[in-house]
Amino acid sequence: MRFPYTFPPLFHRAVFALAYASPACAADETAFEPVRAELVAEHVALVPGGTSSLGVHLRHAPHWHSYWINPGDSGLPTTLAWSLPAGYTAGEVEWPVPKRFDVGGLHNIGYEGDVLLPVALKVPADAVAGSNAPLAVTVKWLACREECIPGKATLSLELPVAREMPRPDARVAAAFTTARLAQPQASAWSGSAHDGGARIAVRLAGAGLPSMSARLDAFVVQRKVVGNAPPSIRRDGDALLIEAARSEYFTRAPVDLDLVVTTTDGPAPRGWHVRVPYAAGTAPAN
């Protein structure tokens, strides 16, 4: 047991680290920092053999944004590199629905304001109740308004390992609730992507397709497949047709296309994830 646990109440053991960006190119300590990052946990303790939700909370200064897994024409996706006790594993970032940023005719995809990037932490079954788990992550992001400032922070959090299911941490409950609502939902739609050379057409059908609206948008997870300008989206009977130019950096057809369809109809942005087979050449038979 590396971190002997003595007796204070569980929540006192949750240490939150708030870190500020260190712009790579600014020596001045008072330099403006467009993003603040914080590592948070949904519950006040970990359970042996359980999965716990962590989150990297990014707070952007007004007018600044950071990037989605596919950043678009410029920018860089935010990356997390974890340093965890033996046996612990962190999953991939569970990217919330992104937003489009069009700056100077270029198309970017990312986040502004407050955003929580959730990550699932698997706790080993042999984690010792009563011990503490020191968790650390190095976060790198690129913040841009029109100009860009790269940021990096190493964030840490120490959580106790508890015997029974711990309670949620009230301080971050709202942020996790918001993050959950902003997760693209798995859709049961069927569909296909057809590469016509200059343009790629995705046809989606099935129950629960969003109604046609100017507030619909679609983003492709894979890079170098479609161009980053807003796609054209329209209804074709019961199907939703999404068309975009093929990327000028297209080199290889993916087996499947991962698409996030989003809408800003409603109180908060929502989205759906759909994976469709990708085929070159002919249009689909209906």
Partner: peptide
């Protein structure tokens, strides 16, 4: 339906 889709594609290429 097929012809409609082809038409849509050819319009956008």
């Amino acid at each position: 339906m097929k012809s409609m889709f082809l038409f849509a594609l050819s319009c956008t290429v």
